[in-house]
Design a protein around this nucleic acid. Structure first.
Lengths: 211, 211
DNA sequence: GTATGATTTAAACGTTTGTTTTAATCGGGT
DNA sequence: ACCCGATTAAAACAAACGTTTAAATCATAC
């Protein structure tokens, strides 16, 4: 093979454009031009534009969800051994920290974070079905764990608050671009660890709020 | 004029499709078919597809922001007369309640809420610039009011938390469709007033969280 | 070296897109 | 009754889209 990484180059270029411009506005021609491959390579290697999107999602989401699930199970095991109940903040952290870590410069997954943020914002989009299939087991486990850490709240209340927390998270996943109104004296480039804590302060308080 | 409401019918149909499918996937042909007008009517009355989007946004956003700003100014006047500081929850309410009220069945603005939710999720989209121009004055005023009600927090902290709160809000604006995983025993159709309170419980606690 | 399967290439495919054009039709003022 | 600007209608426009085709090229095994 003269260029053994054709598929990878397509995946990277597609990830880049899908994240920046969205799925529909991105043409296969712009992807293949950026990837320096022939136009037909997409259909040859992936079958269709939609299958390409699926491949882009799966390449990063599967490893990410394994990390998330691993951390969550580890936390649950640890607290159960100690006869304790997991803290809401720590449950959330197992989900949030691996996510925001991908925003690190040079993590080569920066685009993916923005892409997921966009997917979460397109309720009936092509990507949502693909995405949700890969998220459902983890989501159910996370919901269980949160119910364990917040036994005083009804499932109804819990559901909405998880919803809100995910809304917040998906919002900042989209926003390494500053498309919102940023006051002059606010620095938007905070280290990832700080951002995780800033977010967990907010989300944990929201989850634990008295009615 | 045989059909004096051609423009309005186009606006409604466009709002419907833009909200459901997004801006790019929606064709002018599907809009004009639904509106029962000729294809050329869009370009005749609005100039272009993008200008149509702008008109769709402005038709509802301007009145909405007037209500929001009116309630906010009223609150600030009232508390100032009483020599008090506005409560964070009430500041947020002036923004959130008029928004979620549009989700009411039969408010004829249900589609618009979902559309705004989508716009907020497309950082570099055509709609974002249009949208932000109309939001900036209100956003600045809201940020001022929140700083007043939460004097103990730095502008940096405040900024991020406003960001999170808006993320939560935009998320539920998109989700009168149930695209997320809903447990069987959770009823997603809560009255608007209840949803406002459920949201304000979460967001206020998040805004006021101790670090 | 030659045959073989995998990959790349260039070109064309048929649709669909937003927009423009040109003619037909309408409604109110003189 | 007639005219005129505003609106509607049908048709065509060029451009861009995802996909397919068929030939050329490559790497590898015999």
């Amino acid at each position: 093979m003269s260029q053994p990484d054709t598929k990878q180059r397509i995946l990277c270029a597609a990830e880049h454009f899908f994240a920046r411009d969205g799925y529909h506005p991105t043409s296969l021609r712009s992807i293949t031009t950026e990837a320096k491959v022939n136009l037909a390579a997409v259909n040859y290697h992936f079958g269709s534009k939609e299958s390409l999107l699926e491949a882009v999602i799966e390449r990063r989401l599967n490893p990410l969800n394994e990390i998330r699930l691993g951390q969550l199970e580890a936390l649950l095991e640890k607290t159960e051994r100690a006869g304790e109940t997991p803290m809401c903040r720590e449950v959330l952290r197992t989900f949030v920290e691996p996510t925001l870590c991908l925003r690190l410069h040079g993590s080569d997954s920066e685009d993916f974070v923005a892409l997921i943020g966009r997917i979460l914002a397109e309720p009936r989009g092509v990507a949502m079905t693909i995405f949700m299939n890969h998220m459902e087991p983890l989501m159910n486990r996370l919901f269980q764990a949160l119910a364990l850490s917040l036994p005083e709240w009804s499932r109804q209340t819990l559901f909405w608050r998880v919803h809100f927390a995910f809304g917040s998270l998906s919002h900042i996943m989209r926003c390494h671009e500053r498309h919102s109104i940023v006051p002059d004296d606010v620095n938007i480039d905070v280290p990832v660890d700080d951002l995780v804590d800033i977010f967990l302060d907010f989300a944990t308080a929201g989850m634990e709020a008295t009615q």
